[in-house]
Simulated scan of single mutants.
Amino acid sequence: MSARRIAGVDEAGRGPLAGPVAVAAVILDPRRPIPGLGDSKALSPARREALEPLIRERALAWQLELVSAAEIDRLNILRATLEGMARVVRALVPCAEHALIDGNRLPPGLPCPGQTLVRGDALEPAIMAASILAKVGRDRWMCELELRHPGYGFAVHKGYPTPEHLHALRMLGPCDQHRRSFAPVRACLAPELPHV
């Protein structure tokens, strides 16, 4: 590809019942390679934590955004993710000349030409870097959420629908960080009183 500043874009956290979806964009610097990049899901937590500061330090540009549960509920998870992806690309300085989006949906509102790449987080180093920033950033946020909302186990399951999380959701009810548009959360909301 002839474009010089290529942004890799990825997300973490589309499937959880609670917390934000994290989206990241990274423009790598070919003069400052980062050995060991890979799909964040295939890397150990320790390896992701070691790579994350290297990406921030060596990339030409990077941007991370947490799209809130409220925005997810308002737009739906797909639209909220795509909107977050467009925002992080628009925020890059220097700006991207081309965006490579992990997946098969191109976000509307990109400030540059873009293309999708299915399984891009296993194929394209810039997308790998974005996947690591998104995963590490979201995991940290969920550990902080555990301190604000103890009892749900957010630091362990990161909001995913594990048996432990579903049990806590039934016992405690949803907190303000649960995605009310997701069926397991909706099922735990108090039923509305019939209108008289």
Rank of each mutant, 00 (worst) to 15 (best):
E192G: 14
R170S: 10
P113H: 06
P111M: 03
K135M: 13
R74I: 04
P20V: 00
L82K: 00
G153L: 03
A99F: 03
P107M: 04
L147A: 10
P174R: 07
L75A: 01
A25E: 01
R105G: 02
P150E: 07
S44A: 12
G19V: 01
A7S: 10
T116L: 05
V196Q: 07
C175K: 01
Y160Q: 08
E65D: 06
P150R: 15
R179I: 02
N76R: 05
K158N: 15
L64R: 06
L147D: 05
L78H: 14
D102C: 01
A155W: 15
Y152H: 08
R32A: 04
G153K: 00
I27L: 08
A50V: 04
G15Q: 03
R148L: 07
L110R: 02
M128Y: 13
P45M: 07
P45V: 05
Q115H: 15
A18L: 00
G109D: 06
T162Y: 02
C143R: 14
G159H: 07
W141M: 10
G151A: 14
P35H: 15
G153V: 05
R90A: 01
S40D: 11
L172V: 11
P35K: 05
L64F: 11
V118T: 04
L145N: 13
L51W: 15
G120D: 09
P16W: 04
E124R: 12
G8D: 11
R180G: 01
P20M: 00
A183Y: 03
S68E: 06
D139S: 11
L169C: 02
P107C: 11
G159V: 08
R5V: 06
R48Q: 09
G13F: 02
N104V: 15
G151R: 14
L169G: 02
K135Y: 14
V156K: 13
M142Q: 15
R186A: 12
P30W: 07
I77P: 01
M142K: 13
A187G: 06
P107Y: 12
N104D: 15
D176V: 03
R56M: 10
A126F: 15
P191C: 14
L28K: 12
H167S: 09
R179K: 11
P94F: 04
G103S: 05
L169V: 06
R119T: 02
R48S: 14
C143V: 14
P108K: 15
R79E: 13
G159S: 07
R105V: 09
R138L: 13
G109P: 07
G151D: 13
G137A: 07
L145C: 13
E52Y: 03
P16F: 10
A129H: 13
S2C: 05
R31L: 04
A24M: 01
L110E: 01
P30I: 11
R179M: 03
E49F: 15
L92C: 00
D139H: 09
A59S: 12
L117M: 08
A50H: 05
P161V: 01
Y152G: 05
P161S: 02
R32Q: 04
P20L: 02
D121P: 11
P45Y: 09
A25G: 03
G15N: 02
A86W: 00
E146P: 10
D121M: 09
I77T: 01
T162R: 05
L82P: 02
R32P: 06
R138M: 12
